[in-house]
Design a protein around this nucleic acid. Structure first.
Length: 601
RNA sequence: GCGCCCGUAGCUCAGUUGGAUAGAGCAGCGGAUUUCUAAUCCGCUGGUCGGUGGUUCGAGUCCACCCGGGCGCGCCA
């Protein structure tokens, strides 16, 4: 499938695990549980049926209970119910005040209590904060990145790679065993053309210094020749047949060499991105499984011949697929894309019995995955719902033109882009913090952080306009902003330690965190955010959360009222704890996204 | 033509899965610096949530239709 874009650029399913427990947060459960219990007592409705939410304006309170449903049941006005509930609950919940505001009862947790509980939890759990055991004993398979050999990785691969890697970490955080699979495009008729191009023009390109770029050149020439040159085409077909036969010889040798050279290139890029897969399995790996897979579908009795091809019709399970049956075998007997993915799916199900199998592939392949799932459904595979296409929007260039289109020759090589962002970050460091140690390492981390976060900050389905200027701007809603906030917090902690600040040994006076309520509530919500992001396969939820947290923390830290160092011991101790916890959660979240969190920048 | 997705401030996007007065960043304007890192912080300006109907206590969110943009649609992957 080297001819196409690699598997690139949602479909939210109902996940059993995603069913949220009313308000949710483990850290916040300490507060939400007694509130829900009290509400249940006051309303006569079971606690599990009641829902707490976040007030629109945090000034109103930390948790809110909308009274509409209870009011309906009682045939009363919501504000009256709210007032009554607030009065009933008042004084019943230690450390929590209930206030009626219109149709809501808002709950406000005493700041000192909130701070002590949340900070205690964050510090106790350390790096494990936000994790859970919901995935214990369960496996999630994630197919991501999946470039095609004979071509360098280019910006067209970046979204699947970055999204997939983030999903791997998110799922792992929840205790799942995660198997990342790189489904390398190393098979297909186009390799016949490449082999012939190698025979004919090998000497005309530089395969020594930069084999991948040389191969790209040959690949593009072969595509042109396949179109225009009859003899070339015939030779290419023969070469592919030779490859498919499995016989050792020149063709097989060449294919192996191309694969090896390409994988070396990919691995170098993955190393820079700190990304790895548990399994690297090219399409060729599934080759022996193709016919058995086809037989399996046939045996289910759902196939038919249509215009000479073997198809599975899908109209009966989904009307919108009426006109688009799934093709499994061409008239000439060869298998197709869907056959390969079906074979891969069967193999993966048998090997892993996965809880979920995620395909991080572009939205333009939506039909393909709907068809695959349609076939599974018709076959009666009860695990069909576990297969999810994690789709994402297109990568657009200036003028909203699709970038890295298969028709265009020019590609923006991923390595070049990595160099560019890293250089830009270095320039900023030289301007802002020229004394910084490890400049180059930090520049790599910041540049890469900008690139990665850019791809994870918005909803997957949204198309992304590739704008270098935007990526290279390190201000505002960017990865470097988060890194910077983290580094500032790190700096405070460093100085406290170096100065032997009076706060270090002191017993914290949590009441000084009166103005940090929003930060504390946010810290308490972290685990829920991680869970939701993983369940929906939507890392942007975590990104948006981190941005909001960093903004609140920056505001708090910037205020002279909250000076940490040099304040009285108990005050300083509480503030230091907030700094530690904020830094910890920011760093934790960044790590999950795949953005480094340097201590200094 | 058919199917799927998207449409929120000048630009790029959030909006807690039907709830309170729709929020950020960028851009623009004005402030804060003997800085616990100014890659920052504060303030101002900026909105018929594409349109019209509907569902109900309540709609940016759900439904129908329409408009605009995108992707896809049998022997490619």
């Amino acid at each position: 499938m080297a001819g196409a874009q690699a598997r690139r650029p949602k479909k939210l399913l109902r996940h059993r695990g995603a069913r949220s427990l009313s308000c949710g947060v483990i850290a916040m459960q300490i507060f939400s549980e007694p509130i829900l219990a009290a509400l249940a007592g006051a309303t006569g409705v079971s606690a599990s049926a009641l829902k707490l939410e976040r007030p629109r304006d945090p000034k109103l309170g930390d948790l809110a209970f909308p009274c509409f449903l209870v009011a309906k049941e009682r045939k009363a006005a919501p504000p009256a119910v709210a007032a009554e509930l607030a009065a009933t609950l008042s004084g019943k919940l230690p450390g929590i005040t209930a206030t009626a505001a219109g149709p809501y009862v808002n709950f406000r947790i005493e700041r000192a209590l909130l701070a002590r509980e949340i900070c205690g939890q964050v510090e106790r759990d350390g790096a494990a904060y936000g994790s859970s055991s919901e995935g214990a004993g369960k496996t999630i398979v994630i197919d991501f990145s999946s470039p095609n050999i004979a071509k360098p990785m280019h910006i067209g691969h970046i979204r699947s790679t970055i999204l997939g890697a983030a999903l791997v970490r998110l799922c792992r955080k929840l205790g799942y065993k995660v198997v990342g699979i790189n489904h390398i495009g190393d098979w297909g008729a186009q390799f016949g053309g490449l082999v012939v191009a190698l025979r004919r023009w090998k000497s005309e390109v530089d395969l020594e210094r930069d084999p991948v770029m040389g191969l790209l050149d040959l690949y593009q020439r072969s595509k042109a020749a396949l179109k225009d040159d009859e003899a070339f085409r015939a030779e290419a077909v023969a070469a592919y047949q030779e490859l498919e036969s499995g016989r050792e010889g020149e063709v097989r040798e060449l294919w192996r060499w191309v694969t090896e050279v390409s994988m070396r290139g990919f691995n170098a890029t993955y190393a820079r991105l700190a990304i790895s897969h548990e399994l690297v399995r090219g399409e060729s790996w599934y080759e022996p499984l193709l016919m058995p897979a086809l037989e399996r579908v046939k045996a289910a009795g759902i196939t038919e011949i249509s215009q000479g091809a073997l198809v599975v019709t899908l109209g009966e399970i989904d009307k919108s697929l009426k006109e688009t049956p799934c093709l499994l075998q061409q008239t000439n007997g060869t298998t197709l894309y869907a056959t390969r993915d079906l074979a891969a799916l069967f193999s993966r199900w048998e090997e892993f019995q996965f809880e979920r199998c995620l395909y991080v592939v572009g939205g333009e392949q939506k039909l393909h995955f709907r068809q695959l799932k349609g076939v599974l459904k018709r076959m009666g595979c009860d695990w069909e719902a576990r297969v999810e296409h994690i789709d994402f929007g297109l990568l657009l260039g200036p003028g909203k033109k699709k970038i890295a289109s298969r028709k265009r020759g020019e590609v923006l090589v991923l390595d070049d882009l990595l160099d560019e962002v890293s250089e830009a970050a270095l320039a900023v460091i030289d301007a802002k913090n020229p004394e910084l140690a490890n400049k180059h390492k930090v520049a790599d981390e910041v540049g890469l952080g900008a690139l990665v976060f850019n791809d994870l900050k918005r909803e997957r389905v949204k198309d992304v306009i590739f704008d270098t200027a935007e990526i290279l701007s390190f201000e505002g809603d960017t990865g470097p902003y988060l890194q910077y906030t983290h580094a500032r917090l790190a700096s405070i902690l460093r100085k406290a330690a170096a100065n032997k600040d009076a706060a270090l040994g002191a017993q914290p006076d949590w009441s000084v965190l009166e103005t940090a309520g929003e930060i504390l509530v946010a810290l308490g919500r972290y685990g829920d955010v991680v869970r939701s992001a993983a369940a929906k396969a939507e890392p942007s939820e975590l990104s948006q959360y981190l941005l909001a947290l960093a903004r609140d923390v920056s505001t708090w830290v910037s205020s002279s009222d909250n000076r940490v160092l040099g304040s009285a011991g108990p005050d300083g101790a509480a503030r230091l704890a907030l700094v530690r916890c904020s830094k910890s959660v920011l760093g934790n979240g960044l790590q999950l996204l795949g953005v480094a969190a340097p201590e200094e920048m």
